[in-house]
Design a protein around this nucleic acid. Structure first.
Length: 391
RNA sequence: GCGCCGUUGGUGAAGUGGUUAACACGCUGGUUUGUGGCACCAGUAUGCAUGAGUUCGAUCCUCAUACGACGCC
């Protein structure tokens, strides 16, 4: 990489608006906390509620950017931990930042790596200290040390539009005492991360923890909000087999303490039903691996519930995955063909179902927006659930 | 025609005179929520070619029959 090339990249970077995320609350539904608004970014303005496809390693698995755009994707998510290991933040910086590297001309949110510490090192040795976390690489087992500062520095280099604070993501089964200490530490980490954050184009979000405990969520939210982030997430949900009730409690106990004029992001969720429940409770954006993961295992979201294309009953079914769906997959392929691809292990099968599942969740958020505008989200939920859960 | 060997589920096959016939694949379901893991979990032969016999008891021993492989005329 020549000096001139690097210089060119610097100019491009500085040529941007230097605008962090701006959230405009446009309407709050009359009967619930559900809200509709817009997120203004350097790459355009997007409406909430929004679902973000997950592209951990700088790719939404198996999908091209055209396919993501066709599914109406707005922000996509990528991951600090994975990109730190491969190809490394310096490589991505030299390639012009994450957008240019992966040819995505839309906004990107980078997760901090906090969740990977939890998920990669689950049941394995990890050492969480005040300074940071020692754990082992899933690739070659080498010892790694991730700190709040390091996570933010990497995200600065990746040049994502939204960076996440480095938090501890304790399992749902963690004790009250553990959670309390964990929250205190996460708040100290949030402060340290914010102190080194210096990318003028990049927003920084704080993360609320506290399990399903009302006082802990309140405390975590209030202390995090004091640090004045550009947006706030509710973390520590949808992990370790927690109940849906606990997930909804975590939301309910956090939302009242988050400012109205900032984005609220429920991390890692999810299932269609959980997205609806989240929106009703005041959440703006979601991300989840489910649409792409279940797709690779042959399953699809539909209005009539989740279906499994492995099932023998689809062997000769010429209908699309979901009747009336506007996605590329449903406009072009039958269940019979996709079942054939899935059962024979052909990669097109997972791709086609990923396209459908992502479009399904994005369309769900589009409909939720409309419902908020029309003050009828409770009716929307009722109708959706009646059909989705009947069997 | 004679001799010899063999016949276990959808498939490839292990195995034993005595409670539930190994394993793999396939098949049939299910699971997956800030993606190490195209993964994980469960079910899948009331029966071991057919008939008779020996035995307290046979898929396993004996005999006959059917089918198949090989060798000899």
């Amino acid at each position: 990489m020549s000096f001139f090339c690097f210089f060119d990249i610097m100019n491009k970077s500085q040529g941007r608006d230097s605008m962090k995320i701006k959230y405009n609350l446009l309407k709050t539904e009359k009967n619930t906390k559900a809200r509709f608004g817009t997120i203004k970014t350097n790459y355009g303005t997007y409406e909430t509620p929004m679902f973000m496809p997950v592209g951990t390693k700088a790719t939404v698995k198996s999908l091209s950017k055209e396919e993501l755009k066709a599914a109406h994707a707005g922000i996509i998510l990528s991951n600090t931990y994975h990109l730190w290991l491969r190809p490394g933040p310096d490589v991505i910086a030299h390639c012009g930042g994450l957008h240019k590297f992966m040819s995505w001309d839309g906004p990107i949110l980078t997760d901090s790596g906090g969740f990977q510490v939890f998920s990669l090192a689950k049941n394995k040795k990890k050492d969480i200290t005040e300074e940071g976390v020692h754990f082992k690489s899933h690739i070659d087992g080498q010892n790694l040390f991730l700190t709040p500062e390091k996570s933010i520095e990497i995200q600065n280099k990746l040049d994502s539009d939204i960076a996440m604070s480095f938090d501890e993501c304790p399992p749902a089964s963690a004790s009250y005492e553990y959670l309390k200490n964990s929250i205190e530490r996460t708040i100290r980490w949030a402060k340290r991360g914010k102190a080194v954050h210096n990318n003028p184009n990049q927003a920084l979000f704080g993360i609320v923890q506290g399990g399903a405990h009302e006082d802990l969520r309140k405390y975590s939210a209030e202390e995090t909000v004091k640090l004045d982030f550009d947006g706030y997430s509710i973390g520590g949900v949808a992990n370790d087999g927690e109940s849906k009730e606990d997930m909804y409690k975590a939301i309910d106990y956090s939302i009242p303490y988050l400012p109205e004029n900032k984005v609220r992001y429920l991390m890692g969720v999810g299932e269609p039903v959980d997205i609806i429940e989240g929106v009703i409770r005041g959440v703006d954006i979601f991300d989840c691996v489910l649409p792409t993961r279940i797709a690779r295992h042959g399953q699809a979201f539909t209005r009539d519930g989740k279906i499994n294309l492995n099932n023998a009953k689809y062997k000769e079914d010429l209908s699309p995955v979901e009747e009336g769906c506007d996605c590329y997959t449903c406009r072009n392929y039958s269940k019979a063909y996709i079942r054939h691809l899935i059962t024979t292990g052909e990669m097109l099968g997972g791709r086609l179902l990923s396209i459908h599942n992502i479009r399904f969740l994005i369309k769900l958020t589009e409909e939720l927006r409309e419902a908020i505008k029309n003050d009828n989200i409770l009716e929307y939920r009722k109708n959706f659930l009646e059909r989705y859960e009947k069997k």
